[in-house]
Design a protein around this nucleic acid. Structure first.
Length: 281
DNA sequence: AATTTATGTCAAT
DNA sequence: TTGACCTAAATTT
C-alpha cells in the first residue's frame, strides 16, 4: 500500500543492497519471464524514484531500465541469505508462486534478494520510455531536482479542489491519500478550496510541509507520522496508528489541536478528511 | 470460509 | 463514472 515516500525507501534499499553488483533475476510466477531473462547477469547501476514510480538502471544494451509501479497492492519483500525476511510487507507464507520478479545479489552470508508481487507495472523501458513516464509527472517533493513552481503554476490556474490537485500525480508526484489530507491540515487550508483560491504562501507551506513529513517517513523506513509530539499521548517511542495523523481516517473524532469533530467527505472517488475549525475555507 | 478493504491507475463507457 | 486489475490482511458469516 505504497505512497511515494515508500518508493524512495525501496530505492534506498536497492542502492544499499544491490547497486554496483551483478544481479540474478527470475520470475517464479512466470508472467515476467522474458524481462527477467533479459536482466539476468546485468549489473545494477543505480535507481531513480519519481513519485510512485521506481526505475532501476542496469548495465548492458537498451532497454536498461526496469520500471515498477506498485499500484494499490504491490510490494517488495526483502530476504537475506537464509531466506529470513528483512522488511517489507509481511509475507505469511514464504511461497514464491506469485512472485513476478525476484532479484538476487551476492553469495553465502552476503546473499540478498528482493521479491516483487502484485505490481500494476513491471516493464523494461529504454531512455525514451523513462522520459515519457516522467513527463506525465509533476515535481516530487522528495527529489533534489524538484521545482515546486511547476506545481504552483498548475494549482493557481485550477478550479479543482486543492485536496484533489495534491493527489493528481501530474501536479505533485508521490502524494497519496494520507498526504492529501494531512498536508492541507498542516497548512490550515480546507481541502475543498479551489486551487485558484489558494495563496502562494499557503501553497509554499503545503509544499514544504509535504516534503518534511514525507522525508520524515523515509527516515523512519516508511512509517508515516505527521502529528507533533505535543499533540499526541506519551507512549515512549511507539506512536499508534490513531495518534499518528491529525485528520486522516479520524472522522468523528476530536481534532488533536482544537477538539472540533473531524469531518470526512467524498472527493473524486476517494475520501478526504479535515477539521472545519483549523482549516477555514 | 467467504467477503471486504487497502496509502492506486488506466481503459472503456 | 464504472470496471478491471493485482494481493494480503482485516472483517464478517
Amino acid at each position: 500500500m505504497p505512497e511515494g515516500h515508500m518508493i524512495h525507501v525501496d530505492a534506498r534499499r536497492f542502492d544499499e543492497a544491490m547497486t554496483g553488483h551483478v544481479v540474478h533475476t527470475d520470475s517464479p510466477q512466470g508472467r515476467f519471464a522474458e524481462g527477467a531473462a533479459a536482466l539476468d547477469g546485468r549489473t545494477l547501476r543505480g535507481t531513480e524514484a519519481w513519485g510512485k514510480n521506481l526505475f532501476l538502471r542496469f548495465s548492458g544494451d537498451s532497454p536498461q531500465y526496469l520500471h515498477v509501479h506498485l499500484g494499490l497492492i504491490g510490494g517488495w519483500t526483502w530476504w537475506d541469505h537464509d531466506h529470513q525476511q528483512l522488511s517489507g510487507r509481511p509475507v505469511v507464507k514464504a511461497d514464491s508462486s506469485n512472485v513476478r520478479l525476484r532479484l538476487r545479489v551476492g553469495r553465502g552470508d552476503a546473499e540478498r534478494s528482493a521479491e516483487l508481487r502484485g505490481a500494476i507495472t513491471c516493464t523494461l523501458v529504454d531512455e525514451e520510455g523513462l522520459d515519457t513516464a516522467v513527463a506525465k509527472l509533476g515535481p516530487d517533493p522528495l527529489r533534489d531536482d524538484a521545482d515546486p513552481g511547476v506545481a504552483w503554476a498548475k494549482v493557481r490556474k485550477s478550479k479543482k479542489p486543492i485536496g484533489g490537485l495534491l493527489l493528481d500525480q501530474g501536479v505533485t508526484a508521490g502524494a497519496g491519500l494520507i498526504w492529501r489530507a494531512e498536508v492541507p491540515f498542516l497548512a490550515g487550508v480546507d481541502p475543498h478550496r479551489p486551487g485558484v483560491d489558494v495563496t502562494e504562501d499557503e501553497f509554499t507551506t503545503m509544499w514544504s510541509e509535504m516534503a518534511r513529513v514525507m522525508r520524515d517517513a523515509v527516515e523512519r523506513g516508511g512509517k508515516e507520522i505527521t502529528t507533533d509530539p505535543e499533540d499526541r499521548p506519551e507512549t515512549d517511542g511507539h506512536v499508534s496508528r490513531d495518534d499518528a495523523f491529525y485528520v486522516f481516517r479520524r472522522d468523528g473524532e476530536p481534532c488533536l489541536r482544537c477538539g472540533t469533530v473531524v469531518r470526512v467527505a467524498e472527493m473524486g472517488t476517494r475520501k478526504v478528511w479535515w477539521c472545519p475549525t483549523c482549516q477555514p475555507s
